[in-house]
Computed example of a mutant assay.
Amino acid sequence: MPDEQRPRRPATMKDVAAAADVGLGTVSRVFSNNGKVAASTRQRVEEVAARLNYRPSALGRGLKLSTASNIGLLVTDISNPFYGEFAEGLLGAANAIGHHVILCATGEDPATEREYVDLLLQERVGGIVAFPTSENRELWRSAQDLGTRVLFVDRTVPGIEAACLSVDHQAGARSATEHLLALGHRRIGYLGGPDRLTSGSMREAGYRRAHADVDVGVDERLVVRTRFTRETAYASAVRLLDAPDPPSALFVGNNVLGEAALTAVRDRGLSVPDDISLVMFDDVSWAKLVDPPVTVVAQPTRQLGAMAARTVLTARPEAQQLLLPPQLVVRRSTAAFYG
């Protein structure tokens, strides 16, 4: 399709701010009539908005719902049951206290995250609960400058002072690895997410700390970081299993990686735990239903969601870390190793 025939996306508040060479806060004040704006600046913003055919949303102008009634929720993958349980907890608590929730899924893509945050700012939500990509620092700062309360979950964004709600990732990973070491395993593979994510780096740190505590070295060939997609996770699990000296146990960083690892184990004709023990971060429903059921580091996922709903509009803007303890749940996917 020729470019001139392609449908153009609607202009956003961010587009207007860039074209008018002003901040998002200035554009917001122009269209909400909330706060002082110089007459010349107001005229420039309005002229740019007219040229771009920008349409401020009714919610953004406060015509439908009180802005304090709206919470934006940014998750990464709605097919991941962890995010479904988290959203369920948040929605229930939000409804109970009279808040509405706008759900967005970023797919771990910084560009998509930018689009959704911009959309939520146009809708003038009172707060945003986000599993951030660790990028878009300036956009998150702009959100805070607009007075939008930001609560990160599981992860932080370097340079942004915002409250963060999570479980103690390092403690959870440490307990999982200690369990495997106590069973006699010394070659424990780690399949985790990108280390640029706070949750991934902390879980890997817990894995390493458990080894250091008992003076067991980590074979770096058994440490694999991958994206949270089933295809890449499966390929990474196969790489570990096909190593010349494969691990006797696997600790995987979340349920998507765990599903891929379990599939790879079975596709290789191996069995859990006879050939390889498996521990996974996240206690999702399928972990109890497979045979054998999987040993997990359980997060209080619905509780996290409910806490997020109650916290996002009341948390202080300065950084604070709100930690909940995870729990190791031992099932039949792990066994003693005597090799």
Rank of each mutant, 00 (worst) to 15 (best):
P2H: 14
D3K: 14
R8T: 15
R9C: 04
M13V: 12
G23D: 08
V27Q: 03
V30D: 03
V30Y: 07
N34F: 01
K36S: 11
K36T: 11
S40C: 01
S40W: 10
V45D: 08
E46M: 10
A50N: 08
S57E: 05
L59V: 07
L59D: 09
G60M: 08
R61K: 13
L63D: 13
K64H: 13
S69Q: 12
I71D: 02
L73T: 04
L73H: 00
I78P: 02
S79N: 14
S79Y: 11
Y83N: 06
F86Y: 08
F86R: 02
G89I: 08
L90R: 10
L90C: 08
L91E: 15
A96D: 15
H99Q: 13
V101L: 02
I102V: 14
L103E: 03
E108A: 11
E108M: 07
D109P: 07
E113L: 01
R114P: 01
Y116C: 01
V117F: 09
D118I: 00
L121Q: 10
Q122I: 07
G127W: 06
I128K: 03
F131E: 03
T133K: 04
S134Y: 05
S134L: 02
E135G: 05
N136A: 04
W140R: 01
Q144G: 12
D145P: 00
V150F: 04
V153C: 12
D154M: 05
R155K: 05
T156W: 01
G159K: 02
R174C: 12
A176P: 06
G184N: 07
H185P: 02
G192E: 01
G192M: 00
D195R: 15
L197W: 02
L197S: 07
G200L: 03
M202N: 13
A205T: 12
G206K: 04
R209C: 05
A212V: 14
D213W: 12
G217C: 10
V218A: 06
D219S: 12
L222M: 13
T226H: 01
F228N: 13
T232R: 14
A237H: 07
A237E: 08
R239V: 08
L241D: 09
S248R: 09
A249Y: 12
N255C: 15
L257E: 02
L257I: 09
G258E: 07
E259Y: 11
A264D: 03
A264G: 03
D267P: 03
L270Q: 07
L278K: 04
M280K: 08
D282M: 06
D282A: 04
S285K: 08
T295N: 10
V296F: 04
V296R: 00
V297A: 01
P300Y: 08
T301Y: 04
R302V: 01
L304P: 06
A306T: 06
M307S: 14
A309R: 09
P317G: 09
Q320L: 10
Q321E: 15
Q321D: 14
L323T: 14
L328N: 02
L328E: 08
V329N: 03
S333W: 10
T334R: 04
A335N: 03
